[in-house]
C-alpha cells in the first residue's frame, strides 16, 4: 500500500509537494483539519507565507496536534515550513512549533529581487553530488542545537538540518524536478517503526 503523507494545506505551495510525492508512488493528502492527521505516516509543512500559516494554524488549533504528531512521526518543513518548525523565530508575528532545536531569521537574504537559485553540494543525497536549490525570500538557520545534524550548507551556513524525525530546509525542492529530498523524507517515514 502506498505510504500516506499529509501536507498542511492552509496556504502555500502544498500542491507542488503533493505532485512530487505522487510521482514517487506515495499517497498525498491535503490537510485542512487536524483530525486528518491521524491516518498519515508523515507530514510536510510547505512553503508559503509564515505569518499567514501561523494565523490559520492558531485559528484552526493546529499547534498542539502538530506537536503531538511530530513526537511520533516524521515531519519535513520547507522554507516557511522550516520557520514554523523552528524553536526560535526572530519575529514575534510567527509563533514557533518548536519541533526542532534551531533558530531562524525570516527573509534573511532580502526581498524578492534577492531571491536566487544556486547549486549546493549535497553529499547526503548520493549521486549527482549537487542539488539545484531555489531560495524564495528565504529564511536563514542562525543557530543549531547539539542534537541536530547539518546535512547541507551554503556559504558555510546550514540550509538543511535534521534532528531525529524532523527534517527542515530553507529552499524549495518541490519546485525542481529533482525528487531526491522527498525520497530521503519518504525513507525516513518508511523506516520509522
Amino acid at each position: 500500500m502506498a505510504t500516506r503523507i499529509g501536507i498542511l494545506a492552509l496556504q502555500g505551495d502544498f500542491a507542488r509537494h503533493a505532485a512530487v510525492l505522487r510521482r514517487l508512488g506515495a499517497e498525498a493528502v491535503e490537510i485542512r483539519d487536524s483530525g486528518q492527521l491521524d491516518d498519515c505516516r508523515g507530514l510536510i509543512l510547505p512553503g508559503g507565507e509564515s505569518t499567514t500559516l501561523a494565523k490559520l494554524m492558531n485559528r484552526y488549533r493546529f499547534y498542539e496536534p502538530l506537536r503531538e504528531f511530530a513526537r511520533r512521526r516524521p515531519v519535513m518543513g520547507t522554507c516557511a515550513g522550516a520557520i514554523l518548525a523552528a524553536g526560535r523565530i526572530d519575529d514575534p508575528r510567527v509563533e514557533p512549533l518548536a519541533l526542532i532545536d534551531i533558530a531562524v531569521r525570516r527573509n534573511a537574504y532580502g526581498r524578492q529581487v534577492d531571491s536566487f537559485i544556486t547549486e549546493v553540494a549535497a553529499p547526503c543525497l548520493g549521486e549527482p553530488p549537487a542539488f539545484r536549490a531555489i531560495f524564495i525570500r528565504a529564511p536563514k538557520i542562525v543557530a543549531c542545537g547539539p542534537q541536530t545534524e547539518t546535512l547541507i550548507t551554503f556559504e558555510d551556513e546550514p540550509i538543511m538540518v535534521r534532528q531525529g524525525p524532523v527534517l527542515v530546509l530553507t529552499f524549495h525542492p518541490e519546485l525542481t524536478s529533482d525528487s531526491r529530498i522527498h525520497r530521503l523524507f519518504l525513507n525516513m517515514v518508511e523506516n520509522q517503526a
Binding site: A9, L10, Q11, G12, D13, F14, A15, R16, G47, G48, E49, T52, C79, A80, Q112, S115, F116, I117, I134, I136, R137, H172, L175
Partner: peptide
C-alpha cells in the same frame, strides 16, 4: 530569473 519569479507566485497560492 523566470523561475524565481514564478517561485514567489507559487508561495502565494491559497491566499
Amino acid at each position: 530569473t523566470f523561475e524565481t519569479k514564478v517561485g514567489l507566485a507559487e508561495m502565494l497560492k491559497g491566499g
